[in-house]
Design a protein around this nucleic acid. Sequence first.
DNA 1: ATAACGCATTGCAATATTACGATTAAATAA
DNA 2: TTATTTAATCGTAATATTGCAATGCGTTAT
Lengths: 109, 109
Amino acid sequence: MGLTKTEIFTEEQNQLATMLKAMAHPARIAILQSIIKANSCICGDLVDELGLAQPTISQHLRELKNAGIIQGTIEGVKVCYCIEPKAWNLLAKEMNVFFNSYQDPKGCC
Amino acid sequence: MGLTKTEIFTEEQNQLATMLKAMAHPARIAILQSIIKANSCICGDLVDELGLAQPTISQHLRELKNAGIIQGTIEGVKVCYCIEPKAWNLLAKEMNVFFNSYQDPKGCC
DNA sequence: ATAACGCATTGCAATATTACGATTAAATAA
DNA sequence: TTATTTAATCGTAATATTGCAATGCGTTAT
């Protein structure tokens, strides 16, 4: 097989999984941290900052963009990436709800 | 290639990515939600609740366990899974810090 | 003892991911 | 126009993931 059975899960579960999957790679975490640290866009500086080839960075950026986490704007020859506030804040809220839905044990295991 | 270049990232980035990756699947999100909802352990009920084969559930449980997110206890013939509070709370805190490290735009894109 | 139950493990097929060299496309500079 | 720069895309190799049937392995029931 090799393909997830998305049809048996809720829309929320699938969407959350998609967002988390987009973040679940050290390179993409590093990219997000870089973008946030710069407090604004970042472009091909990422290729220098991280030790990955340009096509690889480009591919990671596309995945983050496809997930809706970042957005890219063309600025002349360069491209400027930044966080998509809506998606970021929504994900933050959802994860917060998820984490807080668990309260320490009440007798088990 | 096909393998992540973990050596060029920090320990924190790699660990966070590993935890997120463990959660980044609808079945595993569903499993965690089920475990949390039951407020205690769950066993092979998951096989009935979700529509996946027993070996598939077992595999997902193992991944969550390997990531340290859940723990399993043998109870006679059955096995009882529950959240590993330390790892859960640590991840919650780390993600919270990460999400809050971004403040809405200040001019860009 | 032996049958039944619950879950883990193995093995495999289908598909996805990661990384990068080579190339292309679009914008600016000469 | 022609070069240069920047980033996306294509193609490909290596590896990982997903899902399940078949099987194995303890534990309990008969």
